[in-house]
Design a protein around this nucleic acid. Structure first.
Lengths: 338, 338
DNA sequence: TACCTTTATGCAAACGTTTTCCTTAAACGT
DNA sequence: ACGTTTAAGGAAAACGTTTGCATAAAGGTA
């Protein structure tokens, strides 16, 4: 009953009185093998419960049919949607994905890079941590000709394919829309400036205000980790003195939701007294009341684009020499909060 | 510049005029190697940019230090939280995790089982699809002595470690609480009966009503996939005739939220006219207004338990012969919706 | 001095494939 | 009837480690 030793290509060969090479070729539908032999081999493989050892195969052939994926965390809506899209696309092409979470830790990210390299993955897709400014730990892939694609959180300058959202435009749209809706006294809660996302969203937002001849008061602008706790602290500061702002743009939805809850507790009416815009179109934004205006990033499209990019590079075994960007549009989803 | 050929243990050996075995042992801190040699080897490895080939190592040593994880989808809050917990715990013990999504497809699940086996993972953690009733495709692991742990969506009878929530108790608490709050005319929207979760939540819920001498009207009980669309359809049926139910228990939060929105559009007041309870304590439940009562499942604890279980089995190389269950408690989080 | 341990290292096989280079026999063309 | 092509398959090396066994040197003991 207990079958300790899983059968190998050699076992099948012996059973059938053919050579191991014939078995290997037959299983891979090599044209040099007759149909009759192929059938015979496959039937026996089936019967003996043969399963190929991909470690051995990968060692010899120098490819694993595995794509590595490094993401900051799968528990964020945007990222988990992307992971799903990537996995579906890649699996449909016969490759497998191994998903690793960096937990937004640069140290862990470096470790994961090494682990993936050690596993000899055929290609890598990365959305870096929020704190990654030096991307040199990814050099090992380019140095060894392993295709590399970044998405969303990406380096400014790195010889790789880059898929990113139009964060500048997303920020601009948010800023412009607040002004259009009559906001004069605007606050802006942005993320850490170590990350391209927040640099771009911020630059776009501020440009929109400038374009409308509105200036952003310096003490109405915040740059910090966009967590619940930080959002509350910022609210305490922001609403410690009147006049209150009449419009707030938050560079992520978690923050926007906290602000929303805070100002309602304060007795302010949304959108009459204050308008709020978030970023990412998280499912919570349409549940909250009044529903929140937010910037849609089309994560499914972004994931599919990243997957297609890596597949293309892997299949044609080419490594890009210089940065090559692809942009995914954004769209302001207008709801009751504005 | 372009370093095509990554250096191997043999390269280091030649450089240092020692044997490959010495290098191998030195790198793994084998006690038979002198400290001097270890230092020398490690320094050279570093200098030459050596990275071990884990395919080769795994092939020879018959272990990969990789734990496979099969989950239905990472985009659900409960699951993504668990994945994170599992990954953190396992990584801390020096193993790596490869995450695979079955997308709730039994076919894909079978494929993933094979892929993981082919990669010779050291152990496997599984939360099955909602439709998996026949678990025999997992036999390959037990047959080859590869430890296996199921969590959340688990088989009724399978020789493996099982970590599951107290769904029966969770259901009972929900039922009992609705009665306590005065509901007489109760509706129950449950998931597909192919899945242990919904069988248990259902059985517990109904038992609670029985214990309170309340009977559940058959046309107030639904069993279907718990999607948004289905929730709306069920609402249309449920609220097509009066009297409306005065309490609803939904076996997941997505459904509870849809019901919530539906009855508010209908002009009913929550909780005065109707009370609603969901399951899983999804972040959306505390955002929605009024905030929703829901059953907390402690996904982080469940993930940690699953990870510890597999690590223990892998490290002592033991395979369990008969089902062995560990239960994670649940807790009814009472909010304004009741 | 002879013998036994201990310590540090080398040798070579083994892991299960894939792949390069051959061999053989049959089929083909003229 | 001859050389030439084609089809089918085998032999053996190779991929980069790990590991059981052997060995040499150094140290300890009687």
């Amino acid at each position: 009953m207990k079958q300790q030793h899983s059968s190998t290509i050699v076992d099948i060969a012996e059973e059938l009185h053919v050579s191991p090479s014939t078995v290997s070729r037959a299983l891979k539908n090599n044209p040099h093998i007759s149909q009759k032999t192929k059938d015979k081999v496959k039937k026996m493989a089936q019967k003996m419960g043969y399963r190929r050892n991909s470690l051995a195969a990968g060692l010899r052939s120098k490819k694993s049919d595995i794509i590595g994926l490094i993401v900051p965390r799968v528990s964020m809506f945007f990222q988990s949607t992307i992971v799903t899209a990537i996995q579906n696309t890649i699996h449909a092409s016969g490759y497998n994905v191994i998903v690793c979470q960096s937990n937004d830790s640069v140290e862990l990210e470096k470790e994961l890079v090494n682990t993936l390299f050690d596993s000899r993955v055929d290609g890598v897709i990365v959305s870096s941590t929020m704190f990654t400014e030096d991307f040199s730990h990814f050099d090992i892939f380019t140095k060894h000709q392993i295709p590399l694609v970044f998405y969303d959180r990406v380096p400014r300058d790195f010889p790789a394919r880059i898929i990113r959202g139009k964060d500048y435009e997303g920020g601009w749209d948010a800023g412009n829309f607040l002004v259009e809706r009559g906001c004069k006294n605007i606050a802006f809660i942005n993320g850490l400036q170590t990350c391209n996302l927040y640099q771009d969203r911020g630059a776009g937002f501020i440009k929109a205000l400038e374009d409308n001849h509105i200036k952003l008061n310096k003490n109405r602008e915040f740059n910090h980790l966009l967590t619940k706790n930080n959002a509350v602290k910022t609210c305490e500061e922001l609403f410690s003195t009147k006049p209150y702002p009449d419009g707030v743009f938050c560079a992520n939805d978690t923050t926007a939701i906290e602000v929303h809850q805070y100002v309602r507790k304060l007795g302010l009416k949304i959108p009459e007294d204050i308008k709020i815009i978030g970023y990412s179109n998280d499912p919570r934004t349409e549940i909250i009341e009044p529903a929140m205006t937010s910037v849609e990033q089309y994560p499914t499209d972004m994931g599919a684009a990243a997957a297609k990019a890596i597949l293309q590079l892997v299949q044609q075994k080419s490594v890009v020499q210089k940065q090559q960007e692809e942009l995914i549009p954004t769209k302001l989803i207008v709801r009751s909060s504005t």
